[in-house]
Amino acid sequence: MDETLAVKSLGALAQETRLRIFRALVAQGPQGLTPGQLSESLGVASTALSFHLKELSHAGLVSQERDGRHLIYRAEFGAMNDLLQFLTAHCCQGEPCEVTASVPVCTAC
């Protein structure tokens, strides 16, 4: 991931509603959610939800697939992992991080 794409991804997530949407899609996993399910569970109006999903999609963080009459939105886990890798590429002054409870802990600090 290059810096321009990282900034675009972080910019898309730097808004409360979009962050909540993305986290809900990550929690749901590959099954994804419909806009109706997202709207109901997050309490976001459908017009606002559509706008936020478009922003996340343009940043490459979510994808959509038509399933009959429904659209299914899914988190793009590859893009999420690329962003995390970009953010931690120079972690711990080049030393391996000790991972505890799924949280990297810098042993060089």
Score class of each variant (00 low, 15 high):
54 K>P: 00
40 E>C: 02
60 G>Y: 13
9 S>M: 15
60 G>C: 10
73 Y>L: 06
2 D>E: 15
82 D>C: 02
78 G>Q: 10
42 L>T: 09
67 D>Y: 07
107 T>A: 15
11 G>V: 06
38 L>Q: 14
95 E>D: 05
17 T>R: 15
87 L>K: 04
43 G>M: 13
56 L>M: 08
87 L>F: 03
14 A>I: 01
52 H>Y: 01
51 F>D: 12
28 Q>V: 00
38 L>H: 12
42 L>P: 09
93 Q>R: 15
44 V>A: 14
65 E>W: 01
7 V>P: 00
47 T>M: 07
99 V>H: 13
51 F>G: 05
23 R>V: 06
46 S>L: 14
106 C>E: 08
106 C>W: 09
96 P>A: 08
9 S>Q: 15
97 C>S: 07
89 A>P: 00
91 C>S: 13
8 K>S: 01
50 S>K: 06
85 Q>G: 01
94 G>Y: 08
93 Q>M: 09
54 K>L: 11
51 F>I: 05
57 S>K: 10
95 E>M: 10
10 L>P: 06
93 Q>D: 15
7 V>M: 05
24 A>I: 02
98 E>K: 12
68 G>L: 12
72 I>P: 11
45 A>C: 05
58 H>G: 06
18 R>N: 14
2 D>S: 09
19 L>M: 15
102 S>Q: 12
63 S>K: 11
108 A>Q: 10
33 L>E: 09
97 C>H: 01
18 R>V: 14
42 L>V: 10
79 A>K: 08
1 M>A: 11
41 S>G: 03
36 G>R: 11
30 P>Y: 12
25 L>D: 00
108 A>V: 00
106 C>Q: 06
100 T>H: 08
103 V>R: 04
7 V>I: 13
9 S>A: 14
72 I>N: 03
62 V>Y: 09
41 S>N: 14
88 T>S: 12
27 A>N: 07
20 R>C: 07
90 H>D: 07
92 C>Q: 04
85 Q>R: 11
2 D>C: 02
81 N>M: 05
69 R>S: 15
47 T>R: 15
75 A>I: 06
107 T>S: 14
56 L>C: 10
72 I>Y: 00
41 S>I: 10
11 G>W: 02
35 P>T: 04
96 P>H: 10
